[in-house]
Structure formats: structure tokens, C-alpha cells
Design a binder for these strands. Structure first.
Lengths: 255, 255
DNA sequence: TTATTAATTGTCACTTTTACATTTAATAAT
DNA sequence: ATTATTAAATGTAAAAGTGACAATTAATAA
């Protein structure tokens, strides 16, 4: 039995795997590909959006999919997600959170691949300035996106649920806003994420009471004659209070 | 080059992997072992406990570890967790939730293994009746447990944090109680999980206001002369309200 | 009959939440 | 210069929820 006349590489691989494992690993256990897929959310001032790419390899080449890639030998899944996001958006230090693992045996028809889902929040403007079109990434309205490959549609639905959940309790939505933003902008973002209308007076009071915002001198006059004051995040309080439970959505208890 | 005179199975494995992938998979991507590890919490009426096993294989044989195992070819990680829990506790339909993935490249010294962490909540009494000692599982006080292998200590810490977090908002702790339980029992459980003392009057009022409990005729007289009334869960309301945000812990906002 | 012990329950002050409409600041139009 | 227009900013009162506090009750044991 030589390498040259092997008719079935696959079985030989299995055979050698078994031998190798008996010698130096966990005997006979199966090995899988491990990937990460990122659900990247952004906000353009009006609508919640999601960043998708045209898949570059078979199968399903040229179909829309989440940004993803395989976990390399020297990196953790978190590292992989950061690397892949940087490659596709040019951005570093993006807000990133593990969603869950997707591991149905048949989810990838080519070969068993487990995928760690991440959701990411980015400032869409920061992205736009740095974009080079090498990766064919494109923003879609969250409610008007193309069908995605594999189980990516489910990932998007799960990520949206989790975004809503977290945003009701923790001030994560600021991650999608530019450094300077107005209260009306913030409110629209909250309304988008929660698919609901919020009372202006109550929202403003609630946001103020968190103590997370610092009012600036400057006004944004693009939206109205009167103009709306810009605010910025109080970074220290933001970091310190991030884990605390807020109550940012009306009727939270009956969601 | 024949199989018989190969001096290095590992390199051959790599070589073949690359060939195999070029033919029928994703070319050249590394494959890893994937395991699940379960952080199993229980409550004995007094203290929060965790279920550990003596590891049965090298390395670290006979050291304490979480209940775990590899994900087989025909099952998802969720399936694997259920299978492995059943094998080790005899219980089916246990409350199980994905915690996160643990994937540092060197976390297992033998071979790269990614592990999906799960936390499980079980009624410790139900377990005790079904135990057979085949698996050398043992309950430990959460605050007095042995050092665990690999990164399992971190998993336990993470799981505890998540348990606390979820228990503050959702009625998951009932999963650790028997069908009939008293309010004082429930309160002790909440106090254990949150490492805090809770005012009896406020706790009782808060729990009642959820509408999740049904008062029974019977009393538990083991703890006092007066006896404490048993309650049971209103299963329908429990299922319906599970996703709603409650506020079960005092001073929730400043945790 | 009394003592004992844990279970059960009530009140008040304070905070938070909700529902709801008017005033204000700037620009554009006359 | 005055007025019209538009979105931003703000206030209040009623209701619900929260936290801090101690007295009463039901059973058994002495």
C-alpha cells in the first residue's frame, strides 16, 4: 500500500487519523472545521442595517452570506472574528460578542463545519470612510435583506433578538453611533432596534438619568431649524456602568 | 514512500488532509476536536452545589473535571450535551443553556480541542434517586470545590456569573427545586445564588406578584413547628412569561 | 397553659414609570 | 420687521413599584 496507488484519500485520512490519535491524541475522535460568522449591525441615522458579503468560494459562490472564515491554528475564535472583521471592514476594536455556536451536522453541505456566531456593532460612518471595495461587502436594511446561505438567516434572527435583549438592559447601542450624536438620533436608533415608537419626553428623561451623556455646545442643524444639541458618551461612566442593569425600553416587563 | 516506513504519522496526516481537502472539502483548513463541558448546578435545600466527575482518560486522569465529552459525527453540540448529561446523571430533559465556546489554542495540552460550555440546572433530589455510581460523579459545595483541569475553573466562574445574571431577570431557579417547594426554600436558593440576604417580606411580595406560583394545601413541617405551605409552579404562566423581564433581586440596578 | 420558633403578613416613604401637550429656538417666507 | 413653520426641548400628575422597617400567627414542645 503506497501513497501513489491510494484510490481513496478520505479513508486513508481516517486510518491515519486513528493511528495518529492512538499515539498522540484522543483516540478515534472525529475532527471538524471550525469557522466564525459575524452578524455586523450598523445604523445610518435612519435605519438598522446589516453588512453582508458575496461569498467567494464554492459552494454557493456569489450568494450573499455573513462575513466569516475559518479559525486558524494559532488563534482563538475571538481572535479569528477580529481578524476576519478587520480584513473585511478595515476596522479594529469593533464591539464584538459571542452569540452561540451553530453546529448541526449537515449545516454545511461540503463538510462538517461548526460555526461560532458573533454579533458586531459598528459606526457605519467610520466604516464608509475606510472602505475599499476588495471584499464586496454591502449594507442592507435589516428588514430588506437578501436570503443568505446555509443557516445564516437563522443567525441573523438570533442576533437581532439578542441585540434587542441586551439593548434593553445595557447601553450597547452607543457603539453604533458616531462620537457626537443627538438625542433624536439616539431615539430613532432605539425605535429601530425595538420596532416601536417611544415617547420623546420619557425617553429623554430616562437617558439623562443614566448620567452617561455629556452635552456639547454644538448643535446639529441638518435635521431642523432649531437644531439639536450634540452629546457625547461619558467614557468612564460608560465603562463603569456597563454591567449594571438599566431599563431603557418602556414596558420592559411585558416584552 | 509506504505506510510501513513512515516515520511521522503526524506529517503524513497533514499531507493527506491537504490532498483530501483539495478534492472534496475546504482546501487546507485545519480540523479540530470539538467537545462539550457541562457546568451542572444543583440545590440541596441549603447550598448551591456543582456536579463534578473524576476524569477517566489521560492526561490529568483521576483529577476532577466538569462532565464532558466529544461531539460525535451525527449530533449537534446541543445533542452531545444532552447525551453526555444523560449518561452521567441518568436524567433527561434537563434545563440546558449554551454558555460560550472555549477555544484558546493551547487549552488542551494533548491536542487542540474547542469546547462548548453548557450550564445545566437540575433538581438534586431527582438526581439522587437515579444515581448509579458508574461515573464517579460527586456534588460539591460551589464555594468549596476542588481545583479543576484545564480551563474548567474559568468555565465554572463564567457559568456562575451567567446564572446570577439570568436568575435576576428570569425564573430559571425553579429548575433546581422539586415540584413542591416552600417560599423559605425558594428564598434561600435566591440568597445562595446571589450571595446576599433578602428581606423576607419584600421577597415574598415580589414572588407573589409574578403570579407564577400556586399555593397548595399541604405544609412542609420539617423546618418548623408552624410549617410552611408548599407551592408549585404554574407551568403555563411559567412558559408564557419566561422571556419577560422580571426583577427578582433587590437593588438590581446597581449590581 | 405557656414558651418557643419559624412562617406569614402590613405600612409608609420614596422612587420610578407612564401618559399626555406646551413652549422654545432657529430659519424661511411674507 | 413680522409671521409662519418645524422639530427640539421640557413639566406634571397619577399610578405602580421598591425598599426599609416589626408585629402577628400557627403549630409543637415544655
Amino acid at each position: 500500500m503506497t501513497i501513489n496507488n491510494l484510490s481513496n484519500f478520505y479513508n486513508l485520512g481516517k486510518f491515519l487519523n486513528a493511528n495518529r490519535n492512538a499515539m498522540r491524541g484522543y483516540s478515534g475522535q472525529p475532527h471538524y472545521l471550525v469557522a466564525v460568522d459575524c452578524i455586523v449591525f450598523g445604523f445610518d441615522g435612519e435605519h438598522l442595517k446589516i453588512l453582508l458579503v458575496k461569498r467567494g468560494l464554492e459552494p454557493e459562490k456569489d450568494k450573499w452570506s455573513l462575513i466569516g472564515g475559518f479559525v486558524a491554528e494559532d488563534e482563538s475564535p475571538d481572535d479569528a472574528a477580529n481578524r476576519i472583521l478587520k480584513k473585511n471592514t478595515g476596522l479594529e476594536g469593533i464591539y464584538l460578542e459571542q452569540l452561540q455556536i451553530y453546529g448541526e451536522p449537515k449545516r454545511d453541505p461540503i463538510e462538517r463545519t461548526l460555526s461560532v456566531g458573533y454579533f458586531a456593532l459598528i459606526d457605519i460612518n467610520k466604516y464608509q470612510t475606510q472602505i475599499n471595495d476588495d471584499f464586496h461587502a454591502e449594507w442592507f436594511l435589516i428588514n430588506d435583506r437578501p436570503k443568505l446561505i446555509f443557516d445564516h438567516d437563522k443567525m441573523v434572527i438570533d442576533a437581532r433578538k439578542k441585540l434587542r435583549y441586551k439593548a434593553a438592559l445595557h447601553p450597547i447601542l452607543f457603539e453604533m453611533l458616531p462620537k457626537k450624536f443627538t438625542i433624536p438620533q439616539l431615539q430613532i436608533l432605539f425605535e429601530e432596534v425595538n420596532d416601536t415608537k417611544i415617547d420623546t419626553r420619557n425617553f429623554s428623561r430616562k437617558i439623562s438619568s443614566t448620567g452617561l451623556l455629556i452635552k456639547l455646545e454644538e448643535k446639529d442643524k441638518s435635521g431642523s431649524k432649531k437644531g439639536a444639541f450634540y452629546f457625547k458618551l461619558d467614557k468612564k461612566k460608560y465603562a463603569a456602568n456597563f454591567q449594571a442593569f438599566l431599563n431603557l425600553i418602556p414596558n420592559l416587563k411585558s416584552i
